[in-house]
Design a binder for these strands. Structure first.
Lengths: 130, 130
DNA sequence: CGCATATATGCAAGTTTATGCATATATTTG
DNA sequence: CAAATATATGCATAAACTTGCATATATGCG
């Protein structure tokens, strides 16, 4: 019961649903999620942890990388049902499709690299304007 | 998408799940829900409204009574899937079973009557104690 | 060991949510 | 129409949640 509430709580947020959608595509590390959804590193990390705590994801470590994926085997039956229903609800959604496309283009580079790229963008803008 | 978030938000609360469980048994009015779960009138009313707004319930009026029930026909397909998965998750849960039993004993009397009964209980207690 | 790097987390500020109380609304009945 | 009654809701307050920033933790490498 408390578990079920926790599951619904974690699913009741747009960003977290978008992360779940990415993981339906494939296993992801934190830095890929932050790239694909253009969110901060801490936010990406927290969302993945929350989905993990709810029993939806598994975690595999590969060196410095934390690789999260949907725990298709380990999930309780009812949880599997809920995730499947959610998957069907995503079907055809524009945002979800675009997110997955951005994920395909994402590279497994760390968050510090992403941060540098963002800064470069920010610095370049004034030049374009003036 | 916004709809899906709303659905999960409404399901991410123990009281609201317990109300949904009651409605799986049968159509209920506000006063029956407040009796079965021993919650305030405003809380019962708000929970039913929230489930209604999320598209899970329908409302039928009979005189002063507002009769809510699960909108099995009107629900979107994905919503039906989610509600069914939720139903399966309830299976065997002690709290849910007890709630349903209390619902069977509940009478369709209004909230003011329930309030009087509660007060009577409160007044009687000191006599038993001293 | 010390540096680089990917991820996790403590804290604070802002926002949202839950709920009791009082009251409004709406319907029935006499 | 007025009284009774079932439900809905405005408001205030407390609790919970979200998120950015800074920093801690953990791993790999030279």
């Amino acid at each position: 019961m408390r578990e079920l509430v926790k599951v619904y709580k974690v699913l009741s947020d747009e960003s977290r649903l978008r992360v779940l959608n990415l993981l339906l595509e494939r296993e992801c590390c934190v830095c890929e999620v932050m790239q694909a959804l253009d969110i901060s590193q801490s936010k990406a990390s927290r969302i993945l942890s929350a989905l993990y705590d709810a029993g939806i994801l598994t975690l595999r470590r590969d060196g410095l990388w934390a690789l999260y994926s949907i725990d298709r085997d380990g999930m309780d039956a009812y949880l599997k049902d809920i995730v499947e229903a959610t998957t069907r609800a995503f079907k055809g959604n524009k945002v979800m499709i675009a997110d997955r496309e951005r994920l395909m283009r994402a590279e497994r580079v760390g968050p510090s690299c992403v941060k540098k790229m963002r800064n470069a963008d920010t610095i370049r803008q004034p030049q374009t304007q003036s």
